[in-house]
């Protein structure tokens, strides 16, 4: 595309964050790396609960340093905290982050504060209305060209209240071959699978061994190693359209089974969101999986990995990572 999006001020900068991340940050720190007059990576982390300022700042800077071309950065703090004894919230963390980013040769150009009532330059009395962000040129342009934030494949209202349970196959080599072939055919086709096919796939997902292979084969650029696939190390850029489709199909499979059998598909959706760099959305799906089947092991383990701040390898690499639909 040749459309040009110009960031002419802080309202534009704040406006593009949800378009880049796919969600509207709350109680978060966001760092945007910059290269001359363009932006590089956007990172969001939960505001520190108990993390020491230096530890927190070093972790965030390590993530930002994945952008090797960055020469500067912006910091946006989203919070309704008032700052306790000090005049500004998370003052020590902001100071530590500014020092660490400067040390990493990404000096901070501006720190902004966004609350649920206003926004302004951090450390000042500036108070601007939030409408200025919504009405910004950047938001209008991105929205006009079809970028949408907060897209969610999962809609519980569409799941229905009752469906017959499926029975997991035994897990023979023939079962595995059949499940993988069916999964591939469904992902390569258009539209949604018929009920019989959907139930056969949903049944295969109930078997842990078969499920692992279906997870792996969702990505076509894998080297065969489950360890590499799970952590997002691929041999080439994934076919992200296929990944989007896999998420949509996973939701379709959830419709043909009752509650208590949806956890494997929710786990797939969570894992795929994590590969895309959407840790928050991934965490949400995996939490739902662990609620659908109490303590569902794969979801619990993936959640633990994600909540330890792991970023999938593929999401760190700007040439391999998921492209949100922007102009």
């Amino acid at each position: 595309m040749t459309e040009k999006l110009t960031i002419s001020g802080p309202a534009d900068l704040i406006a593009i964050v949800p378009h880049l991340l796919g969600n509207r940050p709350k109680e978060s720190f966001v760092v945007l790396t910059a290269r001359r007059n363009t932006l590089g990576a956007t990172l969001r982390m939960d505001a520190p609960a108990a993390a020491a300022p230096l530890d927190y700042a070093q972790m965030m800077t390590t993530y930002a340093a994945n952008d090797e071309k960055a020469t500067a950065s912006y910091v946006i703090l989203y919070t309704d905290e008032t700052g306790g004894d000090g005049p500004f919230p998370y003052a020590e963390h902001v100071a530590a982050l500014s020092i660490e980013l400067a040390t990493a040769r990404m000096p901070v150009r501006q720190v902004l504060l966004v609350t649920s009532a206003h926004w302004g330059t951090y450390g000042t009395a500036e108070r601007n209305p939030l409408d200025a962000i919504k009405d910004s040129q950047a938001n209008a342009t991105l929205t006009y060209f079809g970028s949408a934030t907060d897209i969610d494949v999962y809609n519980p209202a569409l799941l229905g209240r009752w469906a017959l349970p499926v029975e997991a196959p035994e897990g023979t080599d023939e079962d595995l071959e059949m499940a993988c072939l069916t999964w591939q055919a469904v992902l390569d086709a258009d539209g949604t699978p018929d009920t019989e096919t959907a139930r056969a796939l949903a049944a295969a997902f109930q078997h842990r061994h078969l499920r692992d292979y279906l997870f792996r084969d969702t990505i076509t650029t894998h080297n065969g190693s489950f360890g590499d696939v799970l952590t997002g190390k691929f041999t080439g850029r994934p076919n992200w359209a296929r990944v989007d489709r896999a998420e949509a199909i996973a939701f379709e499979l959830m419709k043909v089974v009752p509650a208590g059998q949806r956890a494997p598909m929710l786990s797939l959706m969570g894992w795929l969101e994590w590969l895309k760099g959407h840790g928050s959305q991934a965490d949400r799906y995996l939490k739902l999986a662990a609620e659908d089947v109490s303590g569902f092991r794969l979801a619990v383990l993936l959640r633990e990995l994600i909540n330890n701040g792991h970023i999938a390898d593929v999401a760190r690499n700007e040439n391999m990572s998921y492209n949100r639909r922007l102009i």
Partner: peptide, 28 residues
């Protein structure tokens, strides 16, 4: 029905650091 994926994740988590919450990443 052993899960290789679960075994691999358990091993990976043996060296896990502090809890920070999920991280979101995007690239312009």
């Amino acid at each position: 029905d052993a899960s290789l994926a679960e075994d691999i994740l358990e091993l990976q988590l043996l060296t896990a650091g502090d809890k920070t919450g999920p991280v979101d990443v995007g690239h312009a």
